[in-house]
C-alpha cells in the first residue's frame, strides 16, 4: 500500500512539474512575439537577427526542459 501512495505522489508531482513547461511556452512566445514586432519596425535588420532569436528561444526553452526532466524522473526513475 505504501508503494501505491509513493507512486501516486510521483505521478501527481510529475503532473505538477509539467506545469513548469507552460512557463517555457510563455517565454518562447514572448521571445518570438517581440522579435516579430521588432522585425516589423525594422525589417531590414530582421534577417541578421534570426539566429539570435533561435538562441533566445533555446535558452528560454531550457528551463522548461528541466521541468520536463523532473516530470520524467518522477514518472520513470523514482
Amino acid at each position: 500500500m505504501e508503494g501505491d501512495i509513493v507512486q501516486m505522489g510521483a505521478y501527481i508531482g510529475a503532473g505538477m512539474a509539467s506545469i513548469g513547461m507552460g512557463g517555457a511556452a510563455v517565454g518562447v512566445g514572448l521571445v518570438v512575439g517581440n522579435f516579430v514586432s521588432g522585425a516589423l519596425r525594422n525589417p531590414s535588420a530582421a534577417a541578421g537577427q534570426t539566429a539570435t532569436m533561435f538562441i533566445g528561444i533555446a535558452f528560454a526553452e531550457a528551463l522548461g526542459i528541466f521541468s520536463f526532466l523532473v516530470a520524467l524522473l518522477l514518472m520513470f526513475a523514482v
Binding site: 526553452e61 526542459i65 520536463f68
Partner: peptide, 13 residues
C-alpha cells in the same frame, strides 16, 4: 554544467 542536459533533452523530447 547543465548545458548538455538541456542540449540533449531538447532534441530527444
Amino acid at each position: 554544467f547543465v548545458r548538455p542536459v538541456s542540449h540533449s533533452i531538447r532534441l530527444m523530447g
